[in-house]
Design a protein around this nucleic acid. Structure first.
Lengths: 375, 375
DNA sequence: TTGAAAGCGCTAACAT
DNA sequence: ATGTTAGCGCTTTCAA
């Protein structure tokens, strides 16, 4: 079956009837300027005239012409956001929160995705700048030099989220990924683990993934726990990739008693692989995640993780951007630091007592808390 | 710490240096018209001049002013999309696919969410129309009359996805929810189930949810299987809501041997509740979903469901919208019908033989295949 | 092929 | 408080 894709009856972008302010002005006797004022600064128009104008507008079914409006007012009433991918529980939550927040200010959201590629991000920034966004939200601290240059030149207010960087020249809204992931590692160390594996996100162009890995490494190093290179795997955030990585870790001569994952997707995949191989989690092996996506709470066992308030982060970004509109050139609280919560679930427990584990321990020692995993 | 949200050094939306075509024209000796042509219709300008113009543009770091451009050309190079919520694996996938598809045409995505509210949707449609979107994607067939009226008046090309309606005056891209859900019900009937429970999405303002429920009902009716009112629950798409619903179903005097769920989130919650109550799935009870979100494949047992190619749906919508731009007023293939696949996983199996189930069967009959669940 | 000129529809000074 | 006027920066006839 063939049908037009809802084609206009007139070639014009707006139907002839729809009318411009000019049209309505001549037709109603109220000047276009007043009509415009009623739309933008209602209290500047005295009540009776305003009421009349409102009726005229409503009766005509008037819909403003955004482009003309932006051109004249230098504001698009549109905010931009660029995320690595929309198809992620974390970023979808952030975007949803952002869009709800700017919505209350009458703003719309121009959304793009960078696919974890900083060049792509730069190109999207340019595209959104061309569309005249009044503000912009980006993810993380790693950006192409060109991105920052364009942003600076245009002077568009922007914030970055899901990380924290007190030294950044712009506001950041989020948490310290390195510190938080160190926290999970510390927790596992505290309950006795000494042999670790890591399934991290791919660090290239992804500061959050890189920082989380750095956090894992740092925490272990501070407790003199060695982490072999072969026990650290970087993988794309997908369940199959994580399963494959976990399978590799399980093949290591010194099987880890705990596997730190860069996010919950990776943790979930790791968990599935263990269950598949009839390993008991957490009895045989502990697994931790990051983000606290819905699945982490609902799978069995639940995944020990760090809870990230995705929607709230987005909402904070939205409010900051909104605020930047009003306070033209004024100072704003920046670098919002978000406290995260460690959520302990069933995927982690103290390591097995390894009584018969002599074969796996280098010196056959049964309890050497600072003993590291061999390469 | 206080810091400006990346405030412009100049009050203007664009830095003084950035330059307009006019500026560049006087500065370079090439007219603004030619510069514009180089940007929009390069082949209309002879190579040498074009090359020079391109250098001028590049050296100046020229970034077009979208509003001015839209005003003059009557095209915004922007597509709109309104989904019930972004924070859903299905819609996130659709949006991601849509944005990738329009990206190849140089279009950006203006995204809004309706929160499953048709009035809200109408308001967002209006906002996007004001922003001058060149095309629009909506979800489903249920829309406020006002929504359709505005769309018609503006003549903006639009498509609706995730449903199929051959009678619609605009293109629809998707599948027949009623038919597909009937398919799942038929499958469960085929393997022997006769006592059903249903956990449906909330049908008000959500044609997909309503259609799926209709499909379940229809399939059972055609096989003369009764479905008690008490065995049909409508719930928001959330795991806790689904768990609560499943708990209610399990309390029914005639416990269902199979529970049809409106989507995978509901199925997942239902599954969790069963596991929680130490029921074996599918041995004691079968559960089915819809959408085939990632979790459905990876939980244990996996959820029997209908696979929806979310990203592909979005991409199809994007391509249709793109096509509508070029073929001004021409005919387009519409009502794309997408075939879905039934994926059988571990959450469904033939019903228990109920040998000792006399207490639960009204007439104590052991095998009455067409016997329905009592109210 | 290129340039000059006329808007696109609105907002914001500027008058009154 | 309201109307008149002058652009906003671009695209697109229209001339040359």
């Amino acid at each position: 079956m063939l049908a037009a894709v809802a084609k206009p009856e007139s070639a014009s972008i707006r139907s002839a009837k729809a009318g411009t302010l000019e049209t309505l002005a001549t037709r109603s006797g109220i000047s276009a300027a007043t009509l415009s004022r009623v739309l933008n600064h209602p209290h500047q128009v005295r009540a009776p005239l305003r009421a009349r104008a409102e009726r005229v507008l409503r009766d005509a079914g008037y819909v403003a012409h955004g482009a003309a409006r932006s051109l004249a007012s230098k504001r698009s009433r549109t905010m931009g956001a660029i995320v690595p991918t929309i198809d992620s529980a974390l970023f979808a939550g952030v975007v949803e929160g952002l869009q709800q927040a700017i919505h209350v200010g009458g703003y719309q959201l121009l959304l793009a995705s960078s696919r974890y590629d900083l060049e792509q991000e730069a190109s999207e920034v340019r595209a959104l700048l061309e569309r005249g966004v009044d503000g912009l939200m980006l993810i993380g601290s790693a950006h192409a030099p060109e991105t920052l240059a364009m942003l600076r030149r245009h002077g568009v207010p922007f914030v970055t989220t899901c990380h924290h960087d007190a030294t950044a020249a712009w506001p950041t809204i989020g948490w310290n990924n390195e510190r938080e992931s160190a926290r999970i590692a510390d927790y596992l160390l505290d309950i006795g683990h000494r042999r670790f594996g890591v399934i991290a996100g791919i660090g290239a162009g992804n500061d959050r993934a890189a920082d989380r890995l750095t956090g894992f490494r740092g925490a272990l190093a501070r407790r003199n726990v060695r982490l072999a290179d072969a026990a650290v795997l970087e993988r794309a955030y997908s369940v199959p990739a994580a399963r494959q990585a976990m399978a590799a870790l399980l093949r290591l001569p010194q099987r880890p008693s705990a596997v730190l994952c860069g996010n919950d997707i990776l943790a979930y995949g790791a968990l599935q692989e263990c269950l598949w191989q009839d390993l008991r989690v957490p009895h045989d092996i502990s697994i931790s995640g990051f983000d606290n996506i819905e699945m982490a709470a609902h799978c069995r066992p639940g995944i020990t993780t760090i809870a990230v308030p995705a929607a709230e982060i987005g909402a904070m970004a939205g409010r900051a951007l909104l605020q930047a509109q009003q306070s033209e050139g004024s100072e704003l609280p920046a670098h919002a630091f978000v406290e995260l919560e460690l959520i302990v679930r069933g995927s982690t427990a103290p390591p097995p007592v390894l009584p018969r584990g002599a074969a796996k321990t280098r010196r056959g020692s049964v309890s050497s808390p600072t003993q590291a995993v061999a390469p």
